[in-house]
Structures are given as structure tokens and as C-alpha cells.
Design a protein around this nucleic acid. Structure first.
Lengths: 233, 233
DNA sequence: GTGACATATAAGTCTGACTTTTTGTTCCAG
DNA sequence: CTGGAACAAAAAGTCAGACTTATATGTCAC
């Protein structure tokens, strides 16, 4: 999915990033570049590059005579896809998944409404195709195939909205949906009602019915929220 | 507001970041680290750190034997506050402002609804205080004072929602509101209807009326959208 | 034309020396 | 005892140079 460790500094980040986001170093902890370089058996230059990246994510702050200070969680760039991935991999996963699902519940309905206005004919076709793919794989434990079409569906909606901020959340939604299928319990086939809703959203977009598309998508995301409440009340 | 250039690599980023986000180097352009280092009169190590940061923002990609390739806009981490600031400073400002306002229109109503449920007594008090501050400065060209309370108001709403993803959009909203006041036309006093809406939202949150808080906030953000339509149809 | 091989290129890495800023301590004056 | 100025140490920051590695591209035989 992602691009793991292209280069030594990336290898370091793959270890240090998850550690920090997992809370291994409480806010205010001070690390030293030289020490880290020794620990990871890399040169100082490589370690410095890694620290710079962490700094750009606002996970740490580097100050002279002090060292590399871990910043409090409220400072982190929680929209950075890399940070999202690290956090989803850690113990805070459930909380993170909830935050993201709430975000989805805010964004996706509006995006669907816009998609109904701005979607191209091609995007409408893609949408219908995805919805049909979901229907086709909604029974018989074809979870992976279902997930594939589900992710594609939501990506198209977000992209077709014409808003780049929405479009860039496609990856986030993909992570959330994948998380639900893979990690959390979803042994049974997907909820038939949800499948129907997706089909109806595709229809609404095709029919340029923005209000209906928005309302139906809201039902989908509220279903996702309820699902979380059931799993972790 | 931000932290301009703490260190040489930061100084480089202050020039290179805006240049790239402004489209000075079309997607696919190839830069060479050594050449850049010469141009900015810094050592290669410093330039490498800068490139690593740009890479973490997905503005560029560094590959052996090729160089530093500028990535297409659709790859950029548009939620990175730094990237947002760079883009708001460039010629794409209007489009960027519109994207962010649409995002606001999706997020803030939902956040307000959640705030009505989860806001602490202290947050309710802050909210009322902000709303009163807006009222007090809504006449007589006290734009700066009005802006201050407006920003604070929306920050409290987003924070009080209890969702970290929403809370982290406080800075974005601040940029948008500041942009409207400073850059775009806003010579006249703020719309009295908008001021009233803010007061009512504060009341709704205090009264724990989630639905009302959401609806009223939606009116606010839709007003902001209409304002953009009037300015740039 | 196709595939294997050679080559040049630019990023990647490491090392060591030096600079700069900041913090905490010391020490003297009041 | 207090307060401030001078000082020393610590850690990041910067730089220069040598070396390594991957890889795009061109070349040649087949």
C-alpha cells in the first residue's frame, strides 16, 4: 500500500514514527540526535534527515543545546497520511478509527451532494459499476472483492465532488474501510441495507439529485458510526 | 503566525516551498540537489534536509540517477498547514480559499452538533464570551477585533466537538477567516445576520440542542459560501 | 528488433572538523 | 541572601570531501 523505507532515513522513520505516535516517548521527552544515530546504526546525516521529517509532521521539535523534544499529541499533523498510518498501526487504533469515521460522516454526505452536481458521465458510470460490484460480492464471504468496490465507490464520490480537499481524503476512507474489514469483526456478509444505499446513491448522482445523494450518503456514514458504537460502546 | 525558517534548511523551504506550490516548476520537472545547493548557497546536507521535508509533504520525489522530481498537484499533502499557508500566499489563493470554505461547510456543522453534546461548562462560557465579543465589535469598522473573536469562536466549536480531526482544523479556519478580512473585500461591517447566528449557536450549544446548533452553523457556513460566490461567481 | 552488458550520473551515505546558540552554573557585587 | 553578568559546556547546526549504490541509457552482439 504505502512506500516503506526508501532509503536509510525511511527505514529509521518506519521504527521511530510508530514509536512516537504510539506514545512510547511521552510529550516533552528529549532525544539526542547522536544517541539515536548510534541506536539505529546510521550516520548523523541520515538521522538528521529523519528528524527533519518528524519535525515537518510536528511530532518533534529540534532545539539547540536541548535536543529533539517530542511534542504533545495536539500538535501533531494528524492529517498526514503517514501519521494516520502509523497511528492506525498502534494501540490507539480504535480511537483513531472513530475520529476518522466521524470525519467521514461530516465530509462524505457533502461530497456526495457536490458529486451529484459535478460528476462527469464517466464518473457516473464508474459509480454505478462500483455499486454493482458491491452487490455482486455482497454474499458468500467475498469480503475482499466487496471491500475493493466499496473503496473505489467512495473514492469516486470524493473525487467527483470537484473539491481537492475532499478528494485527498480518499486514502483515509480506504484505510478506514480496510480496517473495518480486516482488523475488526466482519465475519458476516455486509449489511444488505448498506449495499442498497450505495446503489441508490449512484442512482441519485446519475439523476443529478444532490439532496437525495447527500441524504442517502448520510445514512451510510451514520450506519458506519453505529457499527462502531456496537463494537466499542 | 508561523515559524519562519528556524535554520538554514527552513530558509530554503521558505523559498522553494512557495515556488513549487505556486507551480513555478510544472509536475515532472526535475531538479538536482547539487544545483539547488549552489543556487541557495548552502551545503548539500542542508539541501538534502530541505528535500526530505518536501518529500514528506509529497511535493517532490527523490530518485537515484534521476533527481528530485516535482509531483503533480493531486499528490500533495494539501492538509499540511505549511502547504496550506504556501498555497494561500500564491496566485491560487482564491481557488484554495474556496476549497477550504467548502471543507468548512462540511465539517463545522457536524462539529457544532457534537460540541452541543460534549462541550464543558467552561467551553460554553468561552463560546458565549466570543459571541458577545463579536457583537461588541460588529459595528464601527472594528474588523480586527471582530476577526479575533470570530476565530476564537470557531476554534472553540471545533475543539469542543471532542474530535481531534476537527480540532486540528482550527488553524485552517483561522486562515480562511483572516483571508476574508484582510485580503478580500470586507470594508463594511460584518453581516448582522451572521453575528446573530453566532450568538444563537452559542445559545444552542449551551442548551445542549445539537440539532439546532448544527442547523444554525450550517447557515453560517452557507453564508460564507455565498459570500465567495458573490466575490468570484 | 531484442537482450545482455557497460557506463555515466545523481542520489545516498559516512566521517570528521568546526560553528553557533542556548542553558545552567558560577561567582562577584550589592 | 539576592541578582545579574560572565563563563563553560552541551547539543544541534553547518560544511566539505570522499566514497558507495542504484539505475537510466546507450552500445553491441546476435
Amino acid at each position: 500500500m504505502s512506500t516503506p523505507g526508501r532509503g536509510l532515513h525511511g527505514r529509521v522513520l518506519d521504527t521511530l514514527g510508530p514509536a512516537i505516535t504510539a506514545g512510547a516517548y511521552p510529550a516533552g521527552s528529549v532525544l539526542r540526535t547522536d544517541e539515536l544515530a548510534q541506536r539505529f546504526e546510521v550516520s548523523r546525516s541520515v538521522m538528521r534527515e529523519a528528524v527533519r521529517v518528524l519535525e515537518s509532521m510536528h511530532l518533534v521539535e529540534s532545539r539547540r543545546r536541548v535536543g529533539v523534544t517530542v511534542l504533545p499529541e495536539c500538535e501533531w499533523n494528524v492529517y498526514d497520511p503517514q501519521v494516520i498510518r502509523w497511528r492506525l498501526a498502534g494501540s490507539e487504533r480504535p480511537r483513531q478509527l472513530r475520529s476518522l469515521t466521524v470525519l467521514r460522516s461530516a465530509v462524505e454526505p457533502v461530497a456526495a451532494g457536490l458529486a451529484a452536481r459535478h460528476a462527469t458521465a464517466e464518473q457516473c458510470a464508474e459509480l454505478t459499476e462500483c455499486a454493482l460490484g458491491m452487490v455482486a460480492n455482497s454474499r458468500g464471504h467475498r469480503l475482499e472483492e466487496y471491500l475493493f468496490h466499496d473503496v473505489a465507490f467512495h473514492r469516486v464520490i470524493l473525487t467527483a465532488s470537484g473539491n481537492e480537499m475532499f478528494a485527498r481524503l480518499g486514502g483515509v476512507v480506504a484505510e478506514v474501510l480496510a480496517g473495518r474489514t480486516h482488523h475488526d469483526v466482519m465475519f458476516e456478509d455486509p449489511d444488505p441495507a448498506a449495499v442498497t444505499l450505495h446503489v441508490q446513491v449512484a442512482e441519485a448522482v446519475r439523476a443529478r439529485d444532490a439532496e437525495r445523494a447527500e441524504r442517502l450518503t448520510r445514512e451510510i456514514t451514520e450506519g458506519a458510526l453505529q457499527e462502531l458504537d456496537i463494537l466499542a460502546p
